[in-house]
Nucleic acid binder design. Sequence first.
DNA 1: CTGCATCCTCTTCGATACTG
DNA 2: CAGTATCGAAGAGGATGCAG
Lengths: 242, 242
Amino acid sequence: MVSTQSYWQFCPVAMAAEIVCTRWTPLILRELVSGSTRFSDLHRGLPRISPTLLSKRLKQLEEAGVIRRLASPNNETVEYQLTPAGEELKTVVFDLGIWGQRWIETRSSLKNLDPSLLMWDMRRNLDPTPMPPRRYVIQIVYPELTPGRRHWWLIVEGKATDLCNVDPGFDVDLYVSTDLHTMTAIWMGVSTVEAELRSGRLQVTGDDRVRSTMQQWLGLSPFAAEKKRVPSPAVAGQPDTR
Amino acid sequence: MVSTQSYWQFCPVAMAAEIVCTRWTPLILRELVSGSTRFSDLHRGLPRISPTLLSKRLKQLEEAGVIRRLASPNNETVEYQLTPAGEELKTVVFDLGIWGQRWIETRSSLKNLDPSLLMWDMRRNLDPTPMPPRRYVIQIVYPELTPGRRHWWLIVEGKATDLCNVDPGFDVDLYVSTDLHTMTAIWMGVSTVEAELRSGRLQVTGDDRVRSTMQQWLGLSPFAAEKKRVPSPAVAGQPDTR
DNA sequence: CTGCATCCTCTTCGATACTG
DNA sequence: CAGTATCGAAGAGGATGCAG
């Protein structure tokens, strides 16, 4: 029987698409490119993939020479690292994201909201430069959400940032309260901290210096700078700033 | 029930992958980027896709704003054209091909050979500049293949080139005889006309001026110039040039 | 907890035939 | 020419289990 996953074409686009353009693979590559190397970290950035399929895709990527599987001596941990071939896929993944940011309308981009994904992404890109040189705790609250997804803590310490979903017990330096839609819009660059503070959909209380530099330390999506080329109709339930 | 084709992620990479990275879609885009606009031409470049699926993908691409469907007034013909958003996908598709050319080993690239695909691609990229300014007929023969796939004619007239699989009845100006593997390797840039003439796997007889410029008018794959970064083991059954 | 393997269901894809 | 219709095969998702 003919393998159904091959295109049977010698064209390099077809050969590459067989490796890169299968379900979940571009997103797995995005996670790897963003620096995740552990199975569980990858899965955290891709909550809806089944572990079975993630495992299978990682094997296929290894087989294709895109990643290397590195087990620690005693087999305690496994890391997946991009090979040189994998490194060169960064361009493709990034260009794909740029295209998406430019041409996919805001309305549909802002349909698939997930606080744990958003917080996980924020943790990854947070820029601690404006923070004081000590442990700094930011609490983010989405009052609209169910209790289990309502409260989040970002614990900045040196260059590392930790993310918690349960109260870590530290004193909070900065409180942020908003709704998931607004926070996602800011993260994606279709709105700004300033505009949402004015609109009243975002409230920030605490340390004044950190408060005023939020747009900086928030470290937006890598694609946030790219402007939409499609009309962004006013999103339902989200009236414009007065 | 949750739609299974969405990733449920707001990340632009995910949104773009939902549109671009479904089965066959990168290849359909390659055909569109290469200039095909008609359903039957697209299908000719993608012989193994079912018309059902091609039709479905074209609808999805139209829905996504990547192409426009244009029916002639009397509905006799239909054309699919890239929108501005679709034009910007050229980069992504091209980069994907570049990556494939660099990182996928020759052995696997040269597994999926198909004379009609190869000839269709050659027709598309042929450069008629070195030909005399009249109808010029090139016959290509693959003696190894079954009769129905053995003989091909390229009919160059002005800037247009026609491809025939049955004898068009014209006098032939140039005869080319080779095997499919060799011709594909030349087309993909992993071998050259000169090397294969020397190896004896390629024979060309007829018009001397056109014969000597074959490497030029053949108009290789758009990716042929990109050098492989992976070792190219000597391909089985294809010994190196002495 | 990490990193999978199994089992089962549901969706998608491919092959072929057929239509206006 | 430009697609639909049909149906069996393959692939993806979900739940669960389990070893280190």
